[in-house]
């Protein structure tokens, strides 16, 4: 299952890159030049891999893991972008005030603040869902826009840097910054992302809660009437955890990459993170792979813009096409299987 998934994924990547090449050629770019820049920027050197691709994979993996928790319970958190910013704001704020702290205390403090802020940012959608039945798809999405405005206010108001000229915060204290792998820009957050993936893999596979998530997501009525699973409670905690991970991702981006808060800190990690999780079929170890893949695409996109004059958003074509191809391949295999197993089912495929 895992292997066939990887074959499909590789094929989808080829189709996606082919679609990008075709689109570039048709709209008059030099597709060869652009793709060469894409590949060079993503995997062309040890520096490209460690300091561009893997660095960008960190927030994607962390957000993707949170999304996997929520989506397994069929709780559709589309607000990871907002939760990411909530975490980033908290990290920048607390990071400014940790000058005298030892890194071993300062770094966890930043992480805790970011995780708490991400969790808080999803509390309102959770409450609206339970109290009034407001769809979390809509409420989490709406809060993304609120978070963007909040960041805009922060960097021009309470958190603006001391000279009051630039719309960004002052850099956080040295002690709150994440250690780097020597010679690269790869920070400690990468190890955290890997560890989190392993832990969540264990939770999904081996714990009662992992089973309850799936039961809640795939058969809420059955899960509820079984009397052993409190469906509302499971979905609530799934959403809170997904907010926590997105917030943590924001804090780690500030602590390991930007060292400051500014607008457009995220190039859409909150949305790409959803794609990362779905492409990996909500499997934590798969999310590490798809996170690195999309991290590579983002890194390659930046190189494409720099070296070939192609706007970096062009890689979204690859991301979108990859998702569509995987979806279509899955649906077709599923239909072939049911048709073979149950010839009668063919009669009414509405």
């Amino acid at each position: 299952m895992m292997r066939s998934g990887m074959v499909v994924g590789a094929a989808a990547l080829l189709v996606g890159i082919g679609a990008l090449a075709l689109g570039l050629q048709l709209s008059g770019y030099d597709a060869g030049l652009a793709l060469a820049a894409l590949v060079r920027g993503a995997v062309g050197s040890w520096y490209a891999i460690s300091s561009a691709t893997l660095v960008r994979a960190v927030p994607l993996i962390l957000i993707g893991l949170g999304i996997a928790i929520a989506f397994r319970a069929n709780a559709l958190n589309i607000g990871a972008e907002g939760q990411f910013y909530a975490g980033a704001i908290a990290a920048a704020w607390i990071g400014l005030h940790l000058g005298g702290w030892h890194p071993a205390a300062a770094i966890p403090a930043v992480w805790a603040a970011a995780a708490a802020a991400g969790t808080l940012w999803i509390v309102l959608p959770v409450w609206l869902k339970r109290q009034f039945g407001v769809l979390e798809v809509i409420s989490t999405l709406l809060l993304n826009f609120v978070a963007e405005s909040l960041v805009s206010w922060m960097v021009q108001g309470p958190l603006q840097e001391a000279s009051r000229i630039y719309p960004q915060s002052d850099p956080i204290a040295e002690t709150a910054r994440l250690p780097l792998l020597p010679g690269t820009r790869l920070h400690l957050g990468f190890l955290l992302a890997l560890a989190a993936a392993l832990i969540i893999q264990y939770v999904f596979r081996r714990t009662v809660w992992g089973f309850e998530l799936l039961a809640t997501g795939s058969g809420p009525k059955a899960a509820q009437v079984s009397g052993r699973i409190n469906v509302n409670r499971v979905a609530t905690f799934a959403l809170l955890w997904s907010g926590l991970f997105a917030g943590l991702a924001g804090g780690i981006e500030v602590g390991g990459v930007s060292y400051a808060l500014f607008q457009n800190l995220s190039p859409g990690y909150g949305f790409s993170g959803i794609a990362v999780a779905l492409l990996a079929r909500l499997e934590p170890l798969g999310i590490v792979l798809t996170g690195v893949l999309f991290g590579g695409l983002e890194a390659g996109g930046a190189a494409m813009q720099r070296d070939a004059g192609v706007p970096s958003v062009a890689v979204y074509v690859v991301e979108g096409v990859v998702i569509l191809v995987v979806l279509l391949a899955e649906a077709v295999t599923r239909q072939v299987r049911t048709t073979v197993a149950l010839p009668d089912a063919e009669a009414d495929p509405t």
């Binding site: 689109g23 062009a314 074509v317 096409v321 998702i323 979806l327």
Partner: peptide, 20 residues
């Protein structure tokens, strides 16, 4: 296929294509 996922993917493709 799943509508939420496909819709997100279609939007991604459109952002990329229109920008390019």
């Amino acid at each position: 296929v799943n509508q939420i996922v496909a819709g997100t993917a279609v939007t991604l493709v459109c952002i990329g294509l229109t920008g390019t």
